[in-house]
Design a protein around this nucleic acid. Sequence first.
DNA 1: ACCCAGGGGCAAG
DNA 2: CTTGCCCATGGG
Length: 276
Amino acid sequence: MISIAAPEFDLRLTLTSGQVFHWEPDGDAWRGLIGNTAMRVKQRGAELLVPRGCGDLAARYFALDHPLTAIYATFPEDAFSRAALAACRGLRVMRQPRWECLATFLTSAMKQVSHIRGMSLALRTRFGEPVAGSTMNAYPTPGALAEATEAELRGCGLGFRAPHLRETARRIAGGEIDLDALAMRETEELRTELCRLPGVGRKIANCVLLFAYERLDAVPVDVWIARVTRALAPRGGDASLAELETFSRERFGPYAGYVQQYLFHHARVSKTLPAS
DNA sequence: ACCCAGGGGCAAG
DNA sequence: CTTGCCCATGGG
């Protein structure tokens, strides 16, 4: 293990905030994969202990370069947002592998976090390649999922999401869509391209923009964020999802995705909403 | 038994 | 351009 600097970072909060679904606690450390690299990571104060040779990889994955102080300066002043910031200080919006992020959020539709974890693990176990030094397999490639049958995917608990994942995997494996090449597109254009994929609508596209394409202003509006922002927005009681997204982007500013992530996690963990 | 989950697609208004 | 309904599955 080596040590890297990780000021203003909370590993546990970051890994349990509903961004990634394959990390598991191992004593006072965490075990998981960054792409195809096995990792055991442990926080010790303002430093992070990672396997030798994995410092740069981990620093990038955990976004240790994000300017949290500047980001916090943009947070709204209302009581609930302040409480979320106080409760989630050190939570970072990670940089995830694009395909893995797209596929896991595609399976997330109308599922609780624990279910998403279960599907991710089942897909890895059934269709992923083994990784040296890990008992967990890598996330399955687009090709591996494109070749799976719908029944096999349903066997992993995917339900009605199975044909969506299969067809999206097929398009990517076949080269109709290049997730890496899309990285240089502007956000609006990139979102439009992602929304063309079956099973990917506005909310899931925004998750992928935020968690895999560094678009920190993207706001995924799920049921939790809808509840929070309906309470936060003036006359938000009957606002549509589109209106809530517009409200969030305008109210929360250039790091709206960061704000949203703090509100999401705080609301979920505390089981509270803004007083309206 | 009943409810809900980090939604999306499609038809109908 | 909006709204209503269905789509599987599992845990509380």
